[in-house]
């Protein structure tokens, strides 16, 4: 269980971490990084699974199902496109040109 004030500390520290991690990123990586962070919030999947897992009525099950469906698309799609983009980043030394 996460108590209120502890949660607030987590929130604050995570926010600073996010800010610092992106701090000096070159423009060249803006799109892949946006895509990468888009993938990371695909973690909403675990929440969606818990929500569906605790669903009891039909309505809860339907909405929970939609939640998992959307979340998994966020995670999988985000991973695939980010990987495809980053796959292409090579320096001239690596590519031998």
């Amino acid at each position: 269980m996460i108590e209120g004030i502890t949660a607030l500390y987590i929130f604050m520290l995570a926010a600073f971490t996010g800010y610092e991690v992106i701090g000096r990123v070159p423009v060249i990586l803006h799109t892949p990084l946006m895509s990468g962070s888009n993938f990371v919030h695909g973690i909403v999947l675990v929440g969606a699974m818990v929500a569906l897992g605790h669903a009891e009525t039909g309505a809860e099950q339907v909405i929970g199902f939609v939640a998992v469906l959307l979340a998994v698309m966020n995670a999988v799609g985000g991973y695939v496109v980010t990987e495809r983009m980053l796959e292409m980043f090579k320096s001239s030394k690596e590519s031998g040109g």
Binding site: I2, I10, F11, Y19, H41, I43, G47
Partner: peptide, 19 residues
């Protein structure tokens, strides 16, 4: 009450805002 979601979500929220 899911720490992974709090951390990952907040990191993306902050990083995305900066971006």
């Amino acid at each position: 009450n899911n720490a992974a979601m709090i951390i990952a979500g907040t990191v993306v929220g902050a990083a995305g805002t900066l971006l």
